[in-house]
Amino acid sequence: MLRYITKRVFSMFITLLIIATITFFLMKLLPGSPFNNQEKLTETQRYALNEKYGLNDPVPVQYINYLGKLAQGDLGYTFQFDGRTVNSMIANGMGPSATIGFEALIFGTFIGLFLGIIAALRHNSFVDYGAMIVAVFGIAIPSFVFAGLLQYYVGVKLGWLPVAFWDGPEYHILPAFSLSVGVIATVARFMRTEMLEILGTDYILMARSKGISKKEVIIKHCVRNSMIPIITILGPMAIGLITGSLVIENIFAIPGIGEQFVKSINLNDYPVIMGTTIFYSFLIVVIILIVDILYGIIDPRIRVAGGK
């Protein structure tokens, strides 16, 4: 197992290096310069600014310099805000983004699992249809529409919860709930399908005929075995959620990092483009590793195959 993990960690860094390289050169193909006042800059100033940020060097030199700093964990300075480092931007923005995302993930997964299991156990009943209607709505309605409706009706019309901003726990409810709708829907549908398949297998019948109670069979055999595909989708979903949603953060005025993924590209803010991409990729590869290890715990067959 240890050898397996070491091997995976090594290939993780190779993956990151490849991602960083491709992003760097693609980014350099963007036309335009990163300076705010580009319209009014004189030639002398433009040259001096480029010099300061090392943008006059040939691209391969810039690339080597960047990797050197990256190896020390230094992501450089943003061009958008005077004197602010990319590290601090990510550190400050990740808090709110990750909080909301994590809340949405936990809430969404539990509700989704619950709906999925119930729907499968009450297959083709009113309960099943009800749960699946909810799931279809959840997938069909984009989270920003849902967020807008919640904000207007719950925040403005009813006045039950804050319209926006980032303060106490009550400020988390609407954004986290808006984000979780997609999670609920996806998890519920996956869980229902998996459960139905497993409920029909021979080993469940066998367990039942051995005299094990229905409750125990469902929890120990059915649910556990149905979890594998759920864990597979939860990984990437988790990253998507905790790195922040541009739209949800904008609607609820949450000071997260989501916006920078898009904005930095439009503004040619090179260090932020690189920083957010590498950070995101890093999370992805780590989560994939965790998911793979979790597989092994849940399904011993996978552990044996990978761990030799």
Partner: peptide, 18 residues
């Protein structure tokens, strides 16, 4: 001063007197 990027959010905050 609070940072709000979405116009609809601004309108909703105005409606609730914030």
């Amino acid at each position: 001063v609070k940072i709000v990027k979405d116009v609809a959010t601004g309108v909703n905050l105005y409606e609730t007197g914030q």
